[in-house]
Design a protein around this nucleic acid. Sequence first.
DNA 1: TTAGGGTTAG
Length: 606
Amino acid sequence: MQYHAIKRSKLIGPALKTTAIAANKREAEQSCLALLQACDAVPKLAQLHGHVLKLGLRNNPLVLTKFTSTASDLKAIDYASPFLFAPDADTHLYDSFLFNTIIRAYAQTSHGKHKALCFYNVMLEGAVLPNKFTYPFVLKACAGLGDLNLGTSVHGSVVKFGFDDDVHVCNTMVHMYCCCSGGIESARKVFDEMPKLDSVSWSAMIGGYVRVGWSTDAVDLFREMQMVGVRPDEITMVSVLSACTDLGALELGKWVESYIDKEGIQKTVELSNALIDMFSKCGDVEKALKLFRYMSGRTIVSWTSVIDGLAMHGRGMEAMSLFEEMIGTGVAPDDVAFIGLFSACSHSGLVEKGKSYFSSMVENFHIVPKIEHYGCMVDMLCRAGLVKEALEFIQKMPIEPNPIVLRTLISACRAHGELKLGESITKELIRNEPMQESNYVLLSNIYAKMTHWEKKAKIREVMDKRGMKKIPGSTMIELDHEIYEFVAGDKSHKQYKQIYEMVDEMGREMKRAGYIPTTSEVLLDIDEEDKEDALNRHSEKLAIAFALLNTPPGTPIRIVKNLRVCDDCHSATKFISKIYNREIVVRDRNRFHHFKDGMCSCRDFW
DNA sequence: TTAGGGTTAG
């Protein structure tokens, strides 16, 4: 009976004395189990460890199992595993449950995925049979590592041991393949071969498509799910909303919101966060703010999503005041929230504010800046045209700049005429990263601006020789719940003749209004007239022409560009907004541009 | 006595 008292009091010290004088092994074992049940901190576990050894319970399976699960609950598995696998341990006593506990504990940690798999191997070598609970943990570890070969071999074992008909195991397998680079096809194969699919299976596959950026496939699969009559839940809807966010499909997103309401799907905090993120990234930041204001139980993710949304729309001052409000309500900013805040400063030209927040992050919030934070600062300085200061900042950073940071600096060099500097940094970058195509594109762009056509042509040769290609720019537009995608010079659309006539008309009208084509944007060595022609075939202009043809006069036009919008399209869109009296909302890779009456909300910071 | 899918940034 004294053990119940131990459980209640949680006083390990006095209880240990009782245990030490236990009359026999059975009593000692019971006492230890009760103590472990009561243990709620790692130091106490350390104390108990000593007593387990002292009492000769070193190889007692019950005690070991309890010890392991306690360590797992206390996230102290690193402390427990040497004890379990010490040279004098009787590992032949260990059963599946014990191994599952260890594997689960390691699979849950960020650093222990490899160890989880090591223990899985120890399990197999020790002839302990894995059971249906083992594989979800093992597959989770594989998913975390993103190692396709490893995942494929575990898949083999799943089949060998006959767990490939278990829906839990198969769902985790779909998820695992989705997390491995190049595994999406295998995920789909597992998914297609499953005897029965539940909402988790569909969510895993839809989420997987979103993860790899196949958002239209994700939406199609969601439609298929509805057709076969599996009821989606709030988790499914989070993934579907992510797909809308990725596509910039506001109309579809709105439909998803009404579907959630109509079906009575529970609006969890995570689902509300996904809705906020969708609205702010699809251009309706007001709606995002409204949802944010009405939601209960906001988390740091809710705040960050809405701050980020404001940042993308160039509403830096509002983003800052929301950040202050967040701190005021007692939510501590994390490293991600600071990235949103810095991007707000960056996109609104608030350099001094950004610098002071950077100091505050380190001094007041004790967040160690990561490369992403340094990257934001470099971006901020570069956008403001302070290229030299950005260079000095990089030289003073305590960590090595990564290629992303260097590419930011190089783009700024090109934009602000520091061509020699840009050239030398890019050459250095190419030496370190010879197979990264974007480095060659940068150098090629710099040579184009320097009008060094021969050097530029040479770069193209090298790229062709190594089989590298430039990522084609594309622009998406949503019309009547359909998504249309245009690439430069696209002729695949059935209206293409009308679209090109419209583009030509737009060009004539713009010139009349004073537009001068930014021909230095064109990366080909061709004469000026052809350059203008190439600019007019940019995917942004095709999508805008398509919208002008197919939407009523005066209605807003929303387009989504996969890369950063080019200087010429930016300038042209200002003219188009005025000439055709249209509000044009462009989402590019970095941010939103609201064009109205010949002006852009970004005030040319982008 | 143990199991599966989801949200912010880069």
